[in-house]
Computed example of a mutant assay.
Amino acid sequence: MSDHARPVLIYDGDCGICTRCVAFVERRMRTRAEITAWQFADLAALGTTAERAEHEVLWAEPGGRVHGGAQAVARLLIDAGLPWAPLGWVARIPPFRWIAHGLYRLVADNRHRLPGGTPACALPADQRPGARGR
């Protein structure tokens, strides 16, 4: 069971695209979530692992449930209220859920190739510059 009082959005702080997306969220969305890079989070206390955080963005709820990938983004959109929430609700229902998952994986798996991506995105966390035995 986690002990945080509000949701936590966990992202890859080494990824340029992830960092830019988080900057957009912080500028444009009203969310009650704490936003933190997984490299600086107490992942065990949030109910997850570094392996999962390397693979996808995560939404850790206060009750201990953790959503990943497109469903983490959907939870963020819902939490942000209007005008974002309807997109989040749609992304939770089939067939849109499946489409959202496919698009999320396409972007996540190719983020190092996209504008704003960094070479570090292509490496496992323990091989990135400055890795501290994560």
Rank of each mutant, 00 (worst) to 15 (best):
Q127S: 07
S2T: 10
P83T: 04
T48Q: 00
A60E: 01
P83S: 06
W38E: 01
A120K: 11
M29T: 10
L114S: 08
M29I: 10
Q71A: 13
P124H: 09
G102E: 05
R30S: 07
A108E: 13
R132P: 00
H55G: 00
R128T: 03
S2C: 06
L46N: 01
P86M: 07
F40M: 09
W89R: 13
G88N: 12
G117T: 11
C121P: 09
P129A: 07
T31I: 11
I17M: 02
T36I: 12
P124W: 09
A5D: 09
F96W: 15
L106M: 13
W84S: 01
Y11D: 12
P119E: 04
R105M: 12
E26K: 11
E56S: 15
C121Q: 09
R20G: 15
R65G: 08
I99C: 10
L77Y: 09
R6P: 00
N110Q: 07
P62H: 06
D79C: 06
L114D: 05
W89T: 02
R92T: 06
R28M: 09
L58I: 00
M29E: 04
A125E: 01
A60N: 02
P115A: 04
R75S: 13
G69Y: 15
A80Q: 14
H112Q: 08
G64F: 04
R32S: 08
C15W: 02
A45P: 12
E61P: 02
R32A: 09
H67M: 11
G68H: 05
D3W: 07
W59Y: 14
R97C: 04
A60D: 01
D109C: 06
R65P: 10
A70W: 06
A41H: 06
G102H: 03
G63K: 05
G69K: 15
A122W: 09
V8Q: 05
T31Q: 12
R132N: 00
Q127V: 03
F24L: 14
A131N: 12
R97N: 08
P119T: 02
A60W: 02
T31E: 11
G116H: 10
Q39F: 00
V22C: 07
T48V: 02
D3K: 14
V107P: 04
R105D: 14
D109V: 01
M29L: 15
H67C: 08
W89A: 04
F40E: 13
G69L: 13
M29H: 10
R128L: 03
A60L: 01
C121F: 07
G13A: 10
R20S: 14
P124F: 10
L9S: 12
H112G: 08
C21I: 09
G117W: 12
A44H: 15
C21G: 14
R111I: 00
R128V: 03
R28E: 10
N110M: 11
D79M: 10
R128F: 06
W89Y: 11
D12T: 05
Q71D: 14
L58E: 00
V73N: 01
V90P: 07
W98M: 12
D42A: 01
P115T: 05
R28I: 03
A108C: 14
A33K: 10
L76T: 15
E51P: 01
H101V: 09
P129Y: 04
A23R: 12
I10G: 00
A5V: 12
R32G: 12
